[in-house]
């Protein structure tokens, strides 16, 4: 009993000092935060899946007014999709710089990512207003409601991502986001890339396949 008891103490203390913190004590070797983010993203799949399903079901249903697919400006949307796609590149470069400890470069890439995201949102605002001008308001018909809800939800997710990126930049500028916290940047990056892959789906399923 005696030798196991000492063993207990060492491990117990190691664990006690690490409660809820750091990766050394977790069973998987990965931090709670990162695992939690992945679980959350798994959950988000069901949310966007449902929104896409609702749109697919209702895409041709209009008692009055134009359908979304009649108003699409594919060249414009292609450009804004490309902008969002490239923001994933700048995001991953930000993570990479942070891991290597080049905090200035990481900040630059984070700002770039946020700006690309903001460009995408600006494009969405422009798209929505031009649709409304062409006679397709939120409640004009079922297809319109489903379209705005789906793309609007995605837009809200991008906006939340931009706010997180801005917060990261502020933290980094005030010296609170060092190389050792690269994982925080990576976790925000995971969210950002997820929002991007959702748009990859929306761009094809909603815009291109008609």
């Amino acid at each position: 009993m005696a030798d196991t008891a000492t063993h207990d103490v060492t491990l117990g203390e190691a664990f006690a000092a690490e409660v809820g913190s750091g990766h050394h004590a977790t069973n998987t070797g990965y931090t709670n935060e990162k695992l939690g983010m992945w679980v959350f993203l798994g959950s988000e799949c069901l949310l966007f899946g449902g929104l896409i399903t609702t749109y697919l079901l209702y895409q041709d249903r209009a008692v009055e007014g134009p359908l979304p697919k009649d108003l699409y400006d594919i060249p414009f949307t292609s450009v804004s999709s490309f902008v969002l796609l490239m923001s994933s590149l700048t995001m991953v470069l930000a993570v990479s710089s942070q891991v290597q400890g080049d905090l200035r470069r990481a900040r630059t890439w984070l700002v770039g990512t946020a700006l690309l995201g903001a460009t995408f949102i600006a494009g969405q605002v422009y798209e929505f207003t031009s649709f409304v001008k062409e006679g397709m308001g939120y409640t004009t018909n079922l297809a319109a409601s489903a379209f705005y809800t789906l793309t609007g939800f995605h837009g809200v997710h991008v906006t939340v991502g931009i706010i997180m990126l801005a917060s990261l930049v502020a933290l980094s500028a005030s010296g609170r986001l060092g190389q050792d916290r690269a994982e925080t940047v990576e976790i925000v990056g995971l969210y950002w890339h997820f929002v991007d892959v959702v748009w990859i789906l929306i761009f094809t399923i909603v815009y291109l396949i008609t």
Binding site: W38, L41, E44, C45, L46, G189
Partner: peptide, 24 residues
Amino acid sequence: WFMHLKFDSPLFTRTFVAGLAMAV
């Protein structure tokens, strides 16, 4: 590549794919 699932823990891949497959 960007979300690093290629070199990260298989647990993350399983978690995400579970949600994705369930949704599909």
